[in-house]
């Protein structure tokens, strides 16, 4: 199984029936494909609607785009609204979970995912509001950079998206809960705790119930 699929399958297990969820662009958008049967969630798109869905091969409708600007679908029962309402939903705690990618996360639950000074400065878009207001903040990302460096650090070195807001980190190697430092809750398929240690710059505690991901 590829890293991205492992991550998406595992995050899908965190989403509870009835949740309103905002998914970041990239890897998080794979998650709905792996929701267990009987779990129905409503996707929020921060550009102004609830009820985001797949296109399913249908002809795209004008002005129906996701937060990445790409044509998308909508499920029955959706609703459109303006950006003030959209971010009131987000900041006001009406979004149960957000799943975003990350460049770095540290043991205090700090996240950096919006800029690399001098190189990549796309802007934060809605990310800072999402991590501030969503009830559960899950970071879904590959464990290491392409160069093989740990993305889970003692302290983020890049400009932060938020301070102490991340609740959970899911990678292809591990699931960490943030609770006064990092707690290793699960390891990925074929991964040992020792493997996780080698690939993780931050120190972490090991949960007494630490187990293999059930994906």
């Amino acid at each position: 199984m590829q890293a991205k699929e492992i991550i998406a399958r595992r995050v899908a297990l965190e989403l509870k029936d009835g949740y309103v969820v905002n998914l970041g662009i990239g890897l998080p958008t794979l998650i709905p494909n792996y929701l267990p049967s009987g779990i129905n969630i409503t996707l929020q798109s921060e550009n102004g609607f609830l009820g985001l869905g797949p296109l399913n091969g249908q002809e795209p409708l004008p002005n129906l785009v996701n937060a990445g600007g790409q044509p998308c679908g909508m499920v029955p029962g959706g609703s459109f609204f303006d950006s003030a309402m959209s971010f009131a939903l987000i900041r006001g705690g009406h979004v149960d979970a957000t799943v975003l990618g990350g460049l770095q996360v540290d043991r205090c639950g700090n996240l950096a995912n919006w800029m690399i000074p001098g190189k990549m400065v796309p802007g934060m878009g809605g990310a800072m509001d999402l991590v501030t207001g969503a009830r559960h903040v899950i970071i879904a990302m590959e464990h290491c950079t392409k160069e093989g460096n740990s993305k889970i650090l003692k302290q983020c070195s890049l400009p932060l998206t938020c301070r102490s807001k991340v609740h959970m980190i899911v990678t292809e190697m591990a699931v960490f809960r943030v609770d006064n430092g990092l707690v290793l809750e699960e390891v990925g398929p074929g991964v040992s705790v020792e493997d996780v240690r080698k690939c993780t710059e931050s120190d972490f505690r090991i949960s007494t119930s630490c187990r293999q991901m059930a994906i």
Partner: peptide, 21 residues
């Protein structure tokens, strides 16, 4: 991005929910 890094344009990046408020 190119104009910003070349100091040809001033860019203030604001969180989306803050900007709309």
């Amino acid at each position: 991005g190119r104009q910003m890094l070349a100091n040809e344009i001033e860019v203030q990046l604001v969180p989306q929910g803050t900007l709309i408020e």
